Computed example of a mutant assay.
Amino acid sequence: MSDPVTYHHLGPADMSLLLRVPEGVFDNPIDPIQAAAFLGDPRHEMVLALVNGSPVGMGSAVIMLHPDKPPAGFINEVGVLESHRRQGIASALCAALFTRLRGRGCHGIWLATEHDNIAARALYMHLKGRETTEIVVYDWDGAMDAEAGSGSGTGKTTS
């Protein structure tokens, strides 16, 4: 029997916990300056999955505001250590983010992933997401390049 997974919503006081996330959960090493900015911004949301107090997965999101629309939630990234995949952790992380975003007034939640990211697409279909085909993504300054660090918002996932 495996150890139970708990979920913790991060706030500004959780920097030490965030810095304990092992390699393989995020796309790149955590940058403490960016981590502090993320945790300090009230529009950013992050949930960690913990086993015996140690991080094994995370989900992050941002609340997007616009003058003529209600708030929308964007799921930045979901990542789970390879050793803990296919146990429902990614689904639970997404569900926790959905609840948090809806509770904060978001009237829509969305994300994007690569067409060939079969694991992510299976997860989002399992969560009853509607796959759209009408959107085209453009980027500038390498925003979608994984090595640039900002391509992580394309749904690196795994269940």
Results as ranks from 00 to 15, higher is better:
residue 14 D to A: 03
residue 106 C to T: 07
residue 13 A to Q: 06
residue 42 P to N: 08
residue 99 T to H: 07
residue 148 A to Q: 14
residue 149 G to Q: 09
residue 99 T to L: 04
residue 123 L to E: 04
residue 8 H to A: 09
residue 158 T to C: 11
residue 46 M to W: 00
residue 69 K to Y: 14
residue 153 G to M: 08
residue 9 H to Y: 08
residue 62 V to I: 07
residue 51 V to H: 10
residue 61 A to D: 00
residue 70 P to E: 09
residue 157 T to Y: 07
residue 146 A to H: 14
residue 38 F to C: 02
residue 6 T to D: 14
residue 151 G to S: 14
residue 1 M to V: 10
residue 153 G to V: 13
residue 100 R to K: 08
residue 59 G to I: 06
residue 29 P to R: 06
residue 8 H to V: 13
residue 74 F to G: 01
residue 103 G to P: 05
residue 8 H to T: 13
residue 55 P to K: 02
residue 79 G to V: 02
residue 26 F to P: 02
residue 155 G to K: 03
residue 131 E to C: 09
residue 4 P to T: 10
residue 127 L to P: 06
residue 120 A to T: 04
residue 117 N to S: 12
residue 140 W to E: 12
residue 109 I to T: 05
residue 75 I to L: 08
residue 134 E to L: 09
residue 118 I to G: 11
residue 117 N to E: 12
residue 54 S to L: 14
residue 128 K to D: 15
residue 104 R to G: 03
residue 46 M to E: 01
residue 45 E to R: 14
residue 62 V to F: 00
residue 16 S to Y: 00
residue 42 P to Q: 06
residue 71 P to W: 02
residue 69 K to E: 12
residue 154 T to K: 08
residue 94 C to Q: 07
residue 130 R to S: 11
residue 141 D to K: 11
residue 36 A to D: 06
residue 141 D to R: 11
residue 81 L to A: 03
residue 13 A to V: 03
residue 106 C to K: 02
residue 48 L to T: 10
residue 56 V to D: 07
residue 24 G to H: 04
residue 82 E to Q: 11
residue 90 A to E: 02
residue 123 L to R: 06
residue 134 E to A: 13
residue 141 D to W: 13
residue 158 T to M: 13
residue 65 L to G: 03
residue 23 E to M: 05
residue 95 A to M: 10
residue 67 P to T: 08
residue 24 G to L: 09
residue 94 C to Y: 13
residue 116 D to I: 13
residue 126 H to L: 14
residue 48 L to W: 05
residue 106 C to F: 02
residue 145 D to C: 12
residue 142 G to Q: 12
residue 37 A to E: 11
residue 46 M to L: 03
residue 1 M to D: 06
residue 72 A to T: 07
residue 66 H to C: 08
residue 85 R to G: 04
residue 133 T to H: 12
residue 2 S to G: 05
residue 24 G to F: 06
residue 95 A to Q: 13
residue 4 P to I: 13
residue 44 H to A: 04
residue 6 T to Y: 10
residue 101 L to Q: 01
residue 40 G to A: 06
residue 132 T to S: 15
residue 147 E to N: 14
residue 147 E to M: 11
residue 43 R to M: 08
residue 64 M to Q: 12
residue 10 L to D: 01
residue 92 A to N: 12
residue 12 P to Q: 08
residue 66 H to R: 11
residue 9 H to D: 05
residue 151 G to R: 14
residue 19 L to Y: 02
residue 159 S to Y: 11
residue 110 W to M: 09
residue 157 T to F: 13
residue 156 K to E: 09
residue 158 T to A: 15
residue 150 S to E: 11
residue 148 A to T: 12
residue 149 G to D: 07
residue 77 E to G: 03
residue 47 V to Y: 04
residue 61 A to V: 00
residue 155 G to E: 01
residue 44 H to G: 00
residue 77 E to K: 03
residue 110 W to C: 04
residue 120 A to I: 01
residue 111 L to T: 07
residue 48 L to A: 05
residue 67 P to K: 07
residue 132 T to L: 15
residue 134 E to S: 14
residue 42 P to V: 05
residue 31 D to N: 11
residue 53 G to Q: 03
residue 157 T to S: 15
residue 131 E to S: 07
residue 92 A to M: 10
residue 14 D to W: 01
residue 8 H to M: 10
residue 49 A to P: 07
